[in-house]
């Protein structure tokens, strides 16, 4: 649906050249909710703007729905843009127009008859749950309501792609959650592919199925959300995962170990597999002692995602057997190295 092929973006100023993107390769499949996460300055904002040509790539290609938009003439490009909706961090609604007129804008621009506009806007208002606000002005609405209007406006022309530029970053946690659920509903009910950028890993956890982590103009890690949450490879990905899943070994434990090197395992459960039967099975089956250092269960895409850190004691043979057993059960287990 959206394909970045070795995309580079260079900003040239008199004094310096800034390489915002240094060769991006990404593929967003149809139906994905694809999240790009990174700190500010990582290039994610430039990345999302390349999709609807708010920014032009300096090198490489961005293929959207099978087409390279840079090769289209202005008229064809405008037609393609109507298939790509976009919502913004600061909503970017027209303060001088009513909610109704804001949502109607993309339809007015393409010359839709007013009767049709009225119907479509009515539908959209209902979908975002703000039918009563049609005659209000944006400044009379809360942030969450403004973003719903932004969403309704983005959906007006029945796009197949929705771009979300830090869409929840200006909202409080509760409102964020409500807006994210709305995005999920859009993805499911209308089968709209969503590409979102954010600096909040919790957003990724809540609705994305795929994630790419960006740093310094590059994608440093990408994969399914489960993969990245369970086994982040890079330091930055680990940092991001840590913001939502607390799986650190308690400091107090580390302080007390002295010169002794404990065996510590990190176990991830996905879905309905529950932790406790596994632990009790192991301690019955093998001659090992287990003590839980840290445990928590969070939800990723409405699926429980358990995180368990245990210390294992026992003779090496038994420990290895237990490790193999967990692996054979199809559960993700990793040995944690303690440095110093």
């Amino acid at each position: 649906m959206i394909e970045f092929q070795n995309v580079k973006k260079v900003y040239q100023t008199k004094k310096q050249t800034v390489e915002a993107l240094k060769g991006i390769n990404l593929t967003v499949e149809k139906g994905d909710i694809f999240g790009v996460v990174g700190y500010s300055g990582a290039g994610k904002s430039t990345l999302i703007r390349l999709v609807n040509l708010l920014e032009h790539p300096s090198d490489g290609q961005v293929i959207v729905g099978g087409k390279d938009l840079t090769k289209l003439n202005p008229k064809e490009l405008r037609a393609e843009k109507k298939k790509i909706g976009m919502i913004f961090q600061h909503f970017n609604l027209l303060n001088s127009k009513t909610v109704f007129d804001n949502i109607a804008m993309p339809l007015v621009l393409s010359g839709t008859p007013s009767k049709e506009i009225k119907e479509r806007v009515g539908e959209l208002l209902e979908f975002v749950g703000l039918s009563s606000k049609a005659r209000s002005y944006p400044e009379q609405l809360s942030g969450g309501q403004k973003q719903r209007i932004g969403i309704a406006r983005a959906l007006a022309t029945n796009p197949s792609i929705l771009l979300c530029d830090e869409a929840t970053s200006a909202l409080d946690p509760q409102t964020t959650s409500a807006v994210l659920q709305l995005l999920k509903k859009i993805n499911k009910e209308y089968n709209i592919t969503i590409l979102l950028i954010t600096h909040e890993m919790s957003v990724i956890r809540e609705i994305c199925n795929k994630v790419a982590v960006m740093e310094g103009g590059r994608v440093v890690e990408q994969g399914s959300v489960f993969e990245v949450f369970a086994k982040p490879q890079t330091d930055i990905a680990k940092n991001f995962v840590r913001t939502v899943i607390h799986d650190e070994i308690p400091q107090s434990f580390l302080k007390n170990i002295g010169s002794y090197i404990p065996i510590i395992w990190k176990i991830n459960f996905i879905g309905t597999t529950s932790g406790n039967p596994l632990l009790s099975t192991i301690s019955k089956k093998f001659d090992v002692h287990l003590s839980v250092l840290s445990a928590n269960i969070s939800e990723i895409q409405e699926t429980p995602f358990g995180n368990l850190i245990i210390e294992v004691t026992g003779n090496k043979q038994e420990v290895d057997k237990a490790y193999q057993y967990i692996k054979d059960e199809g559960i993700l287990v990793q040995e944690v190295q303690i440095n110093g």
């Binding site: 609604l93 027209l94 303060n95 001088s96 804008m105 393409s110």
Partner: peptide, 28 residues
């Protein structure tokens, strides 16, 4: 606000449409 112009461009508005449907009403 530049963001409003950006939204207009994202919607595929022509230059003329951006001027009289976005720039002038917002600056009126």
């Amino acid at each position: 606000d530049k963001g409003i112009i950006e939204a207009a461009q994202a919607m595929g508005a022509t230059t003329w449409q951006i001027i009289y449907r976005f720039l002038i009403p917002e600056g009126l």
